[in-house]
């Protein structure tokens, strides 16, 4: 069984600032970490690899500048068997479509795969598009918002979040999952011995020539997204707590507030 875990290096803050002149994210002085959603997907992937038994392998895959190596080294310390960083100036400026195309080509170069584990979204862009787009490029079935996955032969049973609760779906591999952690998920921190082992695991850097790509579909050139404006939303004011003796009383009060505000 071959599992691919896609990981992205992101700035270590949810309070990302935007350069008002260029409209890009300010990354200087902000430490970089592995995207938390990706860490959950990776840890689920490692668990599935272990459940699959001997011969199963998990490859951590990332696209980014050479500094993204540190996110992959952490992936290796968390249990990935090997890691590949897609790094090339030709990949620079990619939107989610060009990124998913590039990642999909790399997956193609790895041969027959069984499962791709992605985080639901990256905390720096919050698009939640790259995983589903990869599935489209690779013509794979996908399950999004996966919270818990179990493996039975070639079939995965996935507990996925919905707006109203959960649903359980089955999917046959090969497939792609985008994962989101349950509320009680505690990300692992690798101990020293795992860090030392990580350094001894295979790590490769691949450029565009390695993955047989169409140059027009890479980086900025291959990105159909046009960013009109990026801005920090104004901070929201303080909320109002409604208190009452019963749900009905609070609902009544809420109705009055909404009616007075012209919402209803």
């Amino acid at each position: 069984m071959l599992i691919i875990a896609c990981v992205k290096q992101v700035p270590d803050t949810s309070d990302v600032k935007v350069d008002s002149a260029t409209g890009t994210l300010v990354r200087e002085g902000v430490p970089a970490v592995m995207n938390p959603f990706d860490q959950f997907a990776l840890e689920e992937g490692v668990r599935l690899r272990d459940a699959a038994g001997e011969g199963a392998e998990i490859v951590a895959l990332s696209m980014g500048p050479p500094q993204a190596r540190s996110a992959l080294m952490k992936a290796l310390a968390l249990g990935a068997d090997r890691a590949i960083l897609l790094t090339d100036r030709a990949f620079a400026g990619a939107d989610t479509w060009a990124t998913s195309y590039t990642l999909a080509r790399a997956v193609g170069a790895l041969g027959k795969i069984d499962l791709i584990m992605c985080g639901l979204q990256a905390v720096d862009g919050d698009t939640a598009q790259t995983g589903p787009e990869m599935a489209q490029h690779l013509r794979l079935p996908q399950v999004t918002y996966a919270e818990r996955v179990t493996l039975d032969g070639k079939t995965l049973t996935v507990k996925r979040q919905t707006d109203t609760g959960y649903e359980i779906v089955e999917v046959r591999m090969p497939a792609l999952l985008t994962c989101t952690p349950p509320a009680d998920f505690v990300p692992s921190t690798p101990p020293f011995s795992a860090i030392i082992k990580a350094k001894k695991k295979p790590y490769e850097e691949w450029g565009a020539e390695k993955i047989n790509t169409d140059a027009d579909k890479l980086g900025l050139k291959g990105s159909p997204t046009q960013v009109k404006r990026v801005f920090s939303p104004p901070k929201r004011g303080q909320g109002v707590m409604l208190e009452g003796n019963s749900a009905a009383a609070v609902a009544g009060e809420l109705f009055q507030v909404l009616a007075k505000g012209g919402v209803l």
């Binding site: 540190s70 990300p187 921190t189 101990p191």
Partner: peptide
């Protein structure tokens, strides 16, 4: 070394949580 930087990051994350 890279291992030392990784350990620092790991301890920092562990300690924050």
């Amino acid at each position: 070394s890279e291992e030392q930087e990784m350990l620092r990051q790991s301890v920092r994350e562990w300690a924050a949580k």
